[in-house]
Design a protein around this nucleic acid. Structure first.
Lengths: 132, 132
DNA sequence: CCATATCGCGGGTATATGCCCGCATATGGG
DNA sequence: CCCATATGCGGGCATATACCCGCGATATGG
């Protein structure tokens, strides 16, 4: 009976939702993944790549590359920690500004999402997804 | 209150689930996205790229590239339709074999997923995701 | 029947993602 | 102090994904 692949359904849903969130953030020139990473950095800065990798559940090499993209955009800066191996990431002024400008856009997208589903369904869905 | 980004939550969930489904399909040497595409092709073959793009909700150029990967694996073959513009995709023998071998692996992954959530929650979750 | 619009696709560019390997830097036990 | 081991990263490789552009093929209107 299970004709539809859960994994594919989930990936497709993620693409669709990402599309709308990305559109919401378009005015500040970064996408949802980048905004999310920027906020993770903001919460933890100064933070090393491995730690970011841990909190985001992304591969360290993925984090390294994604951070470099933000660095090229001058939203974050990379430095060295006391441990010379560590690449410590911090926000730049532009990075802080991007978050400040992005928050209302992102909140609007969140609100639109919740409005479409209803608060309760949205909460439940989020709980289910977190539990996956 | 909405601290967590729905979009990010969804993407993370998709990555996690993909990881387990990919592991389940590892014995046949292709991942879930590829298996899913292979099945889409199987259901529609001979099918043109634009049509595949439509049913999978993926960008046509993405489909083109993903199909080429399957082609390099000799799982599908590309030909020309009556309309000389169209690249028609069909399954090869190896492609059919991959599906035959993959189905039980994929079903096991689906079953494990459902078992972990319970049938009802899984059904509900799928319905929610499809509605997104 | 030709000019034009439309369709189908490939390729360029860019990000997101993961795995593996190798290098550099700690760190701890002799 | 020195070597074995562990840690942190970058780079190579591959796929997944999207957007844009241009080319060639087809359909369509005058």
């Amino acid at each position: 009976m299970a004709i539809v692949c859960f994994c594919t359904t989930l990936r497709r849903a993620a693409r669709r939702v990402a599309e709308s969130f990305d559109a919401a953030l378009a005015p500040i020139g970064i996408n949802t993944a980048q905004f999310s990473l920027l906020r993770s950095i903001s919460r933890a800065a100064p933070v090393k790549l491995t730690e970011l990798s841990r909190v985001t559940e992304l591969d360290r090499s993925t984090i390294g590359r994604n951070v470099r993209v933000l660095e090229r955009m001058n939203l974050v800066a990379l430095g060295r920690g006391k441990d010379q191996r560590e690449a410590m990431v911090t926000l730049t002024e532009a990075g802080r500004a991007a978050i400040t400008e992005g928050i209302p856009l992102w909140e609007a997208a969140q609100a639109a999402f919740e409005a479409r589903l209803g608060t309760e369904r949205a909460q439940k869905l989020r709980a289910e997804l977190d539990a996956l």
